[in-house]
């Protein structure tokens, strides 16, 4: 048992951010804070402010809404970490990027969920030996082209099959373009840090729980960072400001790209928000639908956490630009 613990059973790097100074007190501080908050609420009337209450509704709802997808994601990532060996990956994942990237993109069809769950999965896929270009393609494609997202887009835009097709094609091509770019660019250098020693053969279920819990704490912590930012910005930047740019196509495309990043809305819901802004062109709203699932505030935070900050700094702008361009091109062709 102790050998299992001392071996780094997790592949996700803790990036030296782990001041383990409160190892023993930590849990009790948490319990104390929770009970203090519970006792104090209402007594002091501190929390009656409308803005604060609205902010906390938004913040908590983003967290709660992401939780099932996050849990599904870490259960899958735990299974990958505990049961998938590099040999298995090598048998099933094509080695050449020209095959691996498109098939990883299409594999995104199979994960019904939104973007939060796919981050830990991609991390574990890399740790298990998947070429990082393929894992990143999957990371970008899965939340955008899965059936649930496509159906909800169809419901939000009844009868507009071209928009659904455009969303599917633009998202898939953005994911594959980024994957292709990554496969040419790197010798997997940035993601090298994810390839720590692999999970040991014995105690696999224990390894599974350990990896799933660790990934949950990890990705979940960054999810909270993103939710904090998104809830705050939603209140600071009222959506009505948008109306002033509706007439200018270029400006509205830019605004929708920024909006997608700021609002950090789940990919299963963004179609309804886009449907709710009919004063804008379909192309600019397509930009919103293509950018949102691949890059937004909470995702940047999660990428930085799972893959490292340096990675996120490069990956975020490239992904954003690729998504905007492929959405504009698809919009021009199809809409």
């Amino acid at each position: 048992m102790s050998t299992l613990e001392s071996a780094p059973s997790s592949a996700v790097v803790d990036s030296g951010l782990t001041p383990n100074r409160l190892p023993v007190l930590g849990p009790w501080i948490l319990v104390g804070l929770l009970s203090a908050a519970f006792v104090l609420r209402g007594r002091l009337g501190w929390f009656e402010n409308d803005e604060l209450r609205l902010w906390s509704t938004l913040f908590v709802s983003i967290c709660i809404q992401a939780l099932p997808f996050l849990v599904l994601g870490v259960v899958i990532s735990g299974l990958i970490g505990a049961f998938v060996s590099p040999e298995l990956v090598q048998r099933f994942v094509p080695k050449r990027p020209i095959l691996a990237v498109p098939s990883a993109g299409l594999a995104g069809l199979a994960l019904p969920g939104c973007e939060c769950g796919s981050v830990p999965i991609a991390g574990r896929l890399v740790a298990a030996g998947t070429p990082s270009a393929a894992a990143l393609t999957f990371l970008l494609a899965a939340p955008a082209i899965n059936p649930v997202v496509l159906v909800s887009t169809a419901v939000a835009f009844p009868g507009n099959t071209n928009l659904i097709l455009a969303r599917f094609l633009a998202s898939l091509s953005a994911a594959m373009l980024v994957g292709a770019w990554w496969s040419r660019r790197s010798g997997d250098s940035l993601l090298e840090q994810l390839r720590h020693s692999h999970a040991p053969k014995n105690g696999r279920w224990r390894t599974f729980v350990d990896i799933a819990s660790r990934d949950l704490i990890h990705a979940g912590g960054y999810l909270v960072v993103g939710a904090l930012a998104a809830a705050t910005l939603q209140l600071v930047v009222p959506r009505s400001v948008l109306n002033s740019v509706a007439d200018n196509e270029l400006l509205s495309i830019l605004v929708f790209a920024i909006l997608a990043v700021i609002l950090s809305i789940c990919s299963e819901a963004d179609a309804f928000v886009a449907a709710g802004l009919p004063q804008f062109s379909l192309t600019s709203r397509l930009v919103f639908l293509v950018v949102g699932p691949v890059i937004d505030l909470k995702l940047v935070a999660m990428h930085a956490g799972v893959f490292g900050r340096k990675f996120a700094m490069v990956f975020a702008p490239v992904t954003l630009a690729t998504a905007v361009v492929s959405a504009v091109v698809m919009g021009w062709v199809l809409l």
Binding site: T18, L30, R53, V60, S213, R214, G220, G221
Partner: peptide
């Protein structure tokens, strides 16, 4: 021994908000 990053503590924030602000 560390079993998770420090940022994981942030996961207690939604719980604290639920318990205090009670949105």
């Amino acid at each position: 021994r560390a079993a998770g990053p420090f940022v994981g503590w942030l996961l207690s924030l939604p719980l604290l908000v639920l318990a205090s602000v009670a949105p």
